[in-house]
């Protein structure tokens, strides 16, 4: 069930966060979002909450993301319950944002950028998650 949060500050930045049928947790940022540290932390807390301590593949749809602040990148660099992360974008801008994160910060779990959702799911599945 999609999670909508209109009360918590930063909650509006997350468009949806839910498991799909294959047990992959999907996080979709709101359109044109500028991700800062609090919204990054909120997203991470929500992910951990849903995973309940179980390593889970995570697919983040970051298409149309306006920007990711340095502090937000630092939050994403911390370990969470995600066992692998696929960053899904569509434009050259998304690629730059994702690769900058991957290049400058060291991701705590296998993390890759994709422009194709199916490929992203395949890769996540191949990362050996134990399903949900």
């Amino acid at each position: 069930m999609p999670q909508e949060d209109r009360e918590t500050p930063g909650g509006r930045d997350i468009s949806s966060l839910d498991f799909d049928s294959s047990g992959i947790l999907r996080l979709q940022w709101a359109r044109g979002v500028a991700i800062d540290a609090p919204s990054a932390q909120l997203a991470m807390d929500r992910v951990n909450e849903l995973c309940g301590g179980r390593p889970t593949p995570l697919l983040i749809d970051m298409a149309t993301t306006e920007s990711v602040s340095r502090a937000a990148r630092a939050v994403f660099a911390k370990r969470c319950d995600a066992s692998a992360i696929a960053l899904l974008g569509s434009s050259a801008v998304d690629r730059v944002l994702a690769n900058f994160f991957l290049g400058v910060n060291s991701a705590p779990v296998p993390t890759r950028f994709f422009t194709n959702g199916d490929e992203a799911v395949r890769w996540l599945t191949s990362q050996g998650h134990d399903g949900a």
Binding site: T64, S67, S90, S91, A92, V93, D94, R95, V96, L97, F100
Partner: peptide
Amino acid sequence: RDGIDAVTTGINL
């Protein structure tokens, strides 16, 4: 969000 925007984003980062 084309190639030029990607370069611009890189500069911003």
